[in-house]
Design a protein around this nucleic acid. Sequence first.
DNA 1: ATTATTAGTGTCAAATAAACATTTATATTT
DNA 2: AAATATAAATGTTTATTTGACACTAATAAT
Lengths: 235, 235
Amino acid sequence: MDFYKGEPSILLAVDCIIFGFNGESLEILLIKRDLEPERNKWSLMGGFVKPEESPEGAATRVLKKLTGLENVYMDNCGIFGDPKRESHRRVVSITYFALIDTQQYQHIISDQYEAKWFPLDQHPDLIFDHKDMIAAAKRELRTKAALYPILFELLPDKFTIPQIASLYECVYNIQLDKRNFSRKLLASDLIIKLKEKDKENSKKGAFYYRLNTDIYKEKIMSFLRYLPSWSVENE
Amino acid sequence: MDFYKGEPSILLAVDCIIFGFNGESLEILLIKRDLEPERNKWSLMGGFVKPEESPEGAATRVLKKLTGLENVYMDNCGIFGDPKRESHRRVVSITYFALIDTQQYQHIISDQYEAKWFPLDQHPDLIFDHKDMIAAAKRELRTKAALYPILFELLPDKFTIPQIASLYECVYNIQLDKRNFSRKLLASDLIIKLKEKDKENSKKGAFYYRLNTDIYKEKIMSFLRYLPSWSVENE
DNA sequence: ATTATTAGTGTCAAATAAACATTTATATTT
DNA sequence: AAATATAAATGTTTATTTGACACTAATAAT
């Protein structure tokens, strides 16, 4: 039986907003587009959804193709479906943001792409509505990170409290009182102290911690409290 | 020029999870499906995205077709794209939840549909993955309503504090201390007291309020505080 | 006039958050 | 080897917010 006959079919794509944290600032991974139209212009990594995969599956595939990474935290952050968003053909794109630990991202597996990290707020001109996609992803990241401790996904398995604090400062563009932040974070039992210290970034050295994955899953939504409430209110 | 030649195109649909509040409980509006396959089974209202409209536009159109309502609050709440979600053909569906004031929804404009309100937790068996869609919409509604005062969209322009309190109780399945809730709500300046009282629901009568739309837009994210923080933590 | 019912205001103790101070560990310098 | 500089970590205090609970107010029904 041939249902839905005559219904219009559409090209469905995914685009990935790949966030990374270099210890100083947030960055996104962009590529030089490898197909027409707009070949060789800077763009988000993307691809079409194939018949045998879900949109999320497509995003996962596309991310792996570029970075070689699997099991990466990803989250839907928008649907871009204006009929005129690509002038040549009608394409609806579903966007996903990915949080990756840049230390795991050693080298691009695929030489097929010319890829480069850019500071989040200083990326080059991008094709189509990719700039809007990034803006939406940033907004979604902020909202989500206010409710869930997802920012840990941007750090290595072992991290220090100063590291996670400066990450929060980047994402929300605020100055945190490290003393209060650290106290609240520790009170949550979300992180477990290790014996080892990071001696790279200070004389005294800061203890490494790792996530308490049980608490991470349980208390996930109470994380809002690790931010001063006003920071959630602002744009 | 014919770009993207050979790329697989897909049927893209939208489905609407239409929430209403009857003063007692949350309800959703379902229809008896009017096309094959699965004709005459209970289903969410949906439709295919047409070439000249965005997915959001399609959801708006579909909602208007069923209810006659325009300018309804809608929000994306999921993407259902498992290749096997419909056994006959590959369809990706984008879901939107809509919040409507049931008092405006007097009669179904279109007699084309057999539509019925169901209590949110006692809906009939539904086609495909529509049950999952409702569950996702409910989750999304809770999260969003913890950050934004969107629940006012479910009430008439004039509402009472007891009404909005019982709405919150429904959505989060909690018991609120009405005294504390009312105090916090009033402190926000989000609502403006009217002269008139609602005498329907109590002997004393409760004053009507209306939204302060300026504050609604400004302080929108601080609304989290009108809920006890623990209620946000629970699933 | 009395009663029952729900609206709305008031009070207070406990918990939390924010501002600020001090101590600690260690590499570097003298 | 002692002094110094630097950032980490812990401590203290005050202000604010929350949550629990008591009370008063308005009015329809008895």
